[in-house]
Nucleic acid binder design. Structure first.
Lengths: 145, 145
DNA sequence: ACAATAAAAGATATTTATATCTTTTATTGT
DNA sequence: ACAATAAAAGATATAAATATCTTTTATTGT
């Protein structure tokens, strides 16, 4: 298990891919996304359905249909994707699983974890979905293997 | 899902509890540990068996038996517990799940994640298992609820 | 030796995450 | 209208994580 669930990893990779591939206003199909981010097609379909329902990504059915991102979606912070898929627990929950852990009633790791979680959150809030489009085009960063 | 697996959360809480409760050389039984860290007893038993096999904690069977920590174990960094239970993936694996992600072949989040993971690792390597014994005694930090 | 204790080990159950396959609905171009 | 396309939705399967229960083994005190 990584920091995120596998579902979330696929979601982020897919969202980055859709952002890059549809920056020109076109759409991209599930099959093409799955191949390019190396994920199981039908499982990814479920994930993207959910993201679409939540308004994180957009989609149209039928010929020339597919997934894409509108201007608002392109500008979203990556943290929105994480929250939509895994929930915000990673940003907020106690590292040792205590329900009532707080600064008043801290677990032993509370203070240290607060720092790490805040950094993670700040990082993911300051990264936008479209920010890697160019690096992806240039092959400087990758989404598969 | 938190940063660690539930198994790992129980493990860390248990190890902290054993450290505090057996600093005087005594032992503590599984039932007492489970009650005090609010975990399912039999499940925790499995976890502690495994930690015992790996030498992270010590145990003796029979009357007056139970779990404890020797001097070496008390001085261990908490990262050893994490590695024993969840593996080192949290310190090393790609945030987006890519097998071959590296500085030469990075995912979009590679550099940012490297920083967060390193901080987490440094933090967990610099915390020792026994370092909260006193705060636990004083009730300044807690291991349940 | 024996009974009591407590962890170790084994077996099984339940829940959640991940994955696959099929059918339905919306959209498009002819 | 109709056929083709592609996502949405529904149903089911598999694997992994979490949890529970039972039996065995080691140790202790009598």
């Amino acid at each position: 298990m990584g920091i995120f669930s596998k579902t979330c990893e696929y979601a982020v990779r897919a969202v980055f891919f859709i952002a890059q591939r549809t920056a020109d206003g076109s759409r991209v199909g599930i099959k093409e996304i799955a191949v390019n981010i190396d994920s199981p097609e039908h499982f990814l379909a479920k994930i993207l359905q959910d993201l679409s329902r939540r308004g994180i990504i957009q989609s149209v059915k039928g010929p020339n249909g597919g997934f894409y991102l509108d201007a608002q979606s392109l500008a979203r912070p990556l943290s929105d994707v994480i929250e939509a898929v895994d929930g915000g627990g990673i940003f907020r929950d106690c590292g040792l699983g205590l329900k009532e852990c707080s600064s008043k009633n801290p677990c032993p790791l509370h203070h240290d974890f607060l720092d790490v979680r805040n950094r993670l959150q700040n990082m993911l809030e300051s990264i936008t979905i479209s920010q890697f489009n160019e690096d992806l085009n240039l092959g400087i960063v990758v989404l598969k293997k």
